[in-house]
Amino acid sequence: MKIFLKTMVLAAICLPLTATAHKQWLAPSKTVLNVGQWVTFDAGVSTDPFVRDNNAARVENLVITAPDGSVVLPENSATGKLRATFDLQLQQAGTYKVAIVNSSVGASWDDNGQTKRWPARGTTFTAEGFAKEVPANAKDLKVTQSIGRIETFVTAGKPNTTALKPTGKGLELVQVTGFNDLYSGEPATFQFLLDGKPAADVEVEAIADGTRYRNAINEIELKTDKDGRFTINWSQPGLYYLSASVSDDKAEKPATQRRSSYTATFEVLSP
């Protein structure tokens, strides 16, 4: 029973971000373009990256940062059953950051052997609600703050870095090798930051598109070095899903623990 409870509590902790093993992704139609061109994006949640077979991703928290640092709005947004979609015309030269930034707080506790959670699915955290609904002296109370970023990058003409400036909050990726300058056979180096500082020993997973058409996921598993850096060898051209997460106790009150996750999609071209 004790083990069972622990498992339940663990499951509850993980719930806000990984309700299942599903991955949330953004899939750009292209990432290397010229000024004036249109690009379209799909956003979905599925077991295998980029396979539209489960649910559309929620894109309410989508923020597109233009090469000059301003925020631009997507066009033709629509949400289907299996994917959400939106378009963007690249009116400026440079690199755009397309990001879904989710932030939430969730509590779980043991109420006479039953695991209770708050807030309920689909509702949001409020300080008042928390004070009212979550007993302060609840058994095994865990309050978890989750910060998640799902990003991709597209460039019109010459890349620039204005939109790529990290916010300093949660887990973020910084380019060492250009995000839109990726070619199979050429190793690329990126750096993870946690709250703006190099994040060492973070486990990173990368998966190439097309899992449906091969027998193994063939995930690439890497770990950041002391400077938060890691180097990845793209075995083939195509889209890649890259993901990492970190848990720590640097949560904002009333949360006691924090989970920061990061996912990005990169397009690798053939040289």
Partner: peptide, 18 residues
């Protein structure tokens, strides 16, 4: 046809885009 110039992938990367 400038829209399709990025299809000259190496040229675009090495100088075209600038």
């Amino acid at each position: 046809g400038v829209k399709w110039l990025p299809d000259l992938r190496q040229w675009w990367r090495r100088s075209g885009r600038e």
